[in-house]
């Protein structure tokens, strides 16, 4: 009996102490980890889309809470006007989720660019969605009130050869992003005002 109590006590104390330590460490490093993710995963994609912006879009960001989830929006300033917002959405790829950064011009209501962030697509085929600038370039200038589709489905995007599923996934993610944008536009505009220079 005594042995059993000892086992229970030792295991319990050990678990509680390690759980507490990890919870503390997680909160202590959370801000730093978010900064690193911005730097290494999202940052390059954001800067690539917003090339030519006069501010640092990674720094100028705001958050909007939708259904309890907070979404980050990054603001690009062109010619002194904060007219472009960038945010990330997830789409379904061939292998796993595809992260897509989508930029929308809030004045003209047109897509200003897209860039793939995280993906596990096949190298050489689906992975071209990230690596081939010509694919992403097709999205620039599309209107926000129409779904984005590949040409096979009656849209304007020519799919990557050998990677139709990936191309469709990216288009679906972009469509999602646009409907999200239309829904949140009033709130986005409110926030964007603050970045006026």
């Amino acid at each position: 009996m005594r042995e059993m109590i000892k086992m229970v006590v030792v295991l319990t104390v050990l678990s509680v102490v390690s759980g507490g330590l990890l919870a503390y460490l997680r909160t202590a490093t959370a801000a730093q980890i978010e900064r690193q993710e911005l730097e290494f995963v999202k940052g390059p994609a954001i800067r690539q889309i917003l090339e030519g912006a006069t501010n640092d879009p990674v720094n100028d960001r705001f958050k909007i809470d939708v259904d309890g989830k907070s979404h980050s929006f990054f603001v690009g300033v062109f010619d002194g006007k904060p007219n472009t917002v960038v945010f990330e959405v997830a789409g379904k790829g061939f292998a796993d989720a595809i992260g897509l950064m989508v930029a929308v011009n809030v004045e003209t209501d047109k897509l200003a660019g897209v860039a793939v962030t995280t993906h596990k697509e096949t190298p050489g085929l689906g992975a071209q969605a990230k690596e081939d600038p010509a694919f992403a370039a097709q999205f620039v200038g599309l209107p926000v009130d129409q779904p984005v589709k590949v040409s096979k489905d009656g849209g304007s995007i020519s799919a990557l050869s050998g990677a139709t599923i990936t191309s469709r996934g990216v288009c679906a993610a972009a469509t999602d992003a646009l409907s999200q944008y239309r829904e949140l536009k009033p709130r986005i505009l409110e926030h964007v005002q603050r970045f006026q220079q």
Binding site: L14, S15, L21, T29, Q32, I33, Q36
Partner: peptide, 26 residues
């Protein structure tokens, strides 16, 4: 219950390493 105790201790340090690497050597 020594193996269970060892695993708790080891797993704790592994998560410590994981968090630290995520924070400083991403």
């Amino acid at each position: 219950v020594r193996i269970a105790c060892f695993i708790i201790i080891i797993a704790t340090f592994v998560i410590v390493v994981e968090l630290l690497m995520q924070a400083y050597t991403y």
